[in-house]
Design a protein around this nucleic acid. Structure first.
Lengths: 137, 137
DNA sequence: CATTAAATGCAACAATGTTGCATTTGAAAA
DNA sequence: TTTTCAAATGCAACATTGTTGCATTTAATG
């Protein structure tokens, strides 16, 4: 995704266009899965830690990004426009290298819930060892 | 729940019966909602912080407690009935109260993996708002 | 260009969770 | 009952994740 397009999206969202916001949103748009603060720090080594938290919060506040907790209790961020692409995947997480792989198979249909329960999201995570890590051990 | 009953449950789970485990499990059984580490520290002021983490982990490891992440990214623990087997259930996690509910439905079969990938475990988590939290809001 | 509210960078702090290690203890064996 | 030892504990230190205060810089507007 082009920087100028991303800048326009940020401007359209009603907040200032800053280099930090552009770089973070570009990274989120390019990411295959939601990124943690630590992921983004690694991708953008020059960014200030606190500014990064604030940039992420501002993107969430203006609707350009989504914030969720992962099973480890860490916040992960995704660009709003890419969220839908990954809601219909199964993710395979390699417990050795930490990599996340999108499997082709469609996730199973959501189960029936007891009366009064409201469904928000379904997560189907498969864990194990990926092919390259399996080959190394 | 009586201490001696709780002690028996702990013994039956195959781990040592210690005062810490008994007190923590009694607290979890008496709690209306899943408790965070901070909640338990407040309930058991004499307990050592690190020991409390380890007691909770051991109860989870032997199946007596369930561990979930609340919307703030904090782990919450709840007592799980010793009769119930948790490996073949779908879990519903309430994003409001942090509660974990076991659904009756059987989990879906594991998907096909790319060549070389090794499957370790499958997690099928459904998130949303439980009936009592939905009623309150 | 001048103005100003918003954004940034830095330091310090707070909350949550983990690791290493010496000591104590539950419970099984003698 | 006493002995024994792996498991559990208590303590200190550390790690990770996220927040707050404040002085400085900057994006957008007139």
């Amino acid at each position: 995704m082009d920087d100028s397009v991303v800048s326009a999206q940020i401007r359209a969202a009603g907040v200032k266009v800053t280099p930090g916001r552009v770089r973070v949103l570009v990274a989120l748009l390019a990411a295959a899965q939601p990124l943690s603060h630590a992921d983004l720090e690694a991708l953008l080594p020059d960014a200030d830690r606190v500014t990064l938290y604030r940039v992420l919060d501002s993107l969430v506040a203006c609707g350009l990004a989504l914030k969720a907790v992962d099973p480890r209790g860490v916040f992960r961020f995704s660009a709003s426009s890419t969220q839908r692409e990954h809601s219909s995947h199964i993710h395979f997480r390699c417990t050795y290298c930490g990599g996340v792989f999108c499997l082709k198979a469609a996730p199973p249909p959501p189960p029936k819930l007891p009366r009064g329960f409201r469904l928000a999201e379904v997560e189907y995570d498969v864990r194990g060892v990926c092919a390259s890590c399996a080959a190394h051990t």
